[in-house]
Amino acid sequence: MPHSEHRIVPNIEHAELEIDILLNAVFRLSGYDFRLYNRSSITRRIYNRMRVSNISTITQLTNLIIHDSSFLEQILNDFSINVTEMFRNPSFFKAFRTDIIPRIKDYPEIRIWHAGCATGEEVFSMAILLEEEGLMDKAVIYATDMNEEVLKKAKNGVFSLHKMQAYTKNYQLAGGKEAFSQYYKTDQQFAYFHNDLLKNIIFAQHNLVTDQSFNEFHVIICRNVLIYFTQALQNQVHQLFYESLTVGGYLGLGDKETLRFIELMPKYIEINSTERIYQKVE
């Protein structure tokens, strides 16, 4: 802006500009597009990185990202929030068991898409649930995330021993039918989930922002992913989900997410409003 030398631009505008540049740089360098992500979250992650790595301006960080590939990886890692638990919000899984399973159990094949599966805790939970409902053999779970590193972790099915007490409680609250310990072995640090659970899970890299629909599913689970997106991007991703669902297919969202303000809401009905389970009806 050459004509505005004398104008005092508030810092916040600077920051916006700097973040725009940073996100553009990240997109150009990595193909990961965070430009439509919830700006406040992205901003916090950037400032957090700056604090941890002792960087004073966003531009400096951008500079590092451009010239040091390890920083690019670092910031990508920072942007990708992989908070998850096994049977996270157990009531969701309980509702899935009681409300959705009876409706889909007679399908000849059940295709489930777990979008944004992170380190796979919920995918394994779903696999256990399907196993207990006797549906594992005809179900295929497509577990996707944009972050290949977390997918690698997910494929291992190895989770920290420290979290297993909480997961056991979640499993019980989610209506687990067996002893949770049937599904894993432990050593001093980790719990290793049985490979049998993996047999019908396909892990694949998929970016909700930039990639297209790749199949038609009976169930799509995407929990606590959309909270990082702006409303516009949420609409875009919901369009993708809508295109990827069969008529009569089910969409499960996170407990703080809702279809209520999404343009496609009229094409869905609520199956369980508190657990955010919706059915595509047209």
Partner: peptide, 9 residues
């Protein structure tokens, strides 16, 4: 949503 995102962060 923001709160949830923040809490996850």
């Amino acid at each position: 949503e923001e709160l949830q995102a923040q809490s996850e962060e």
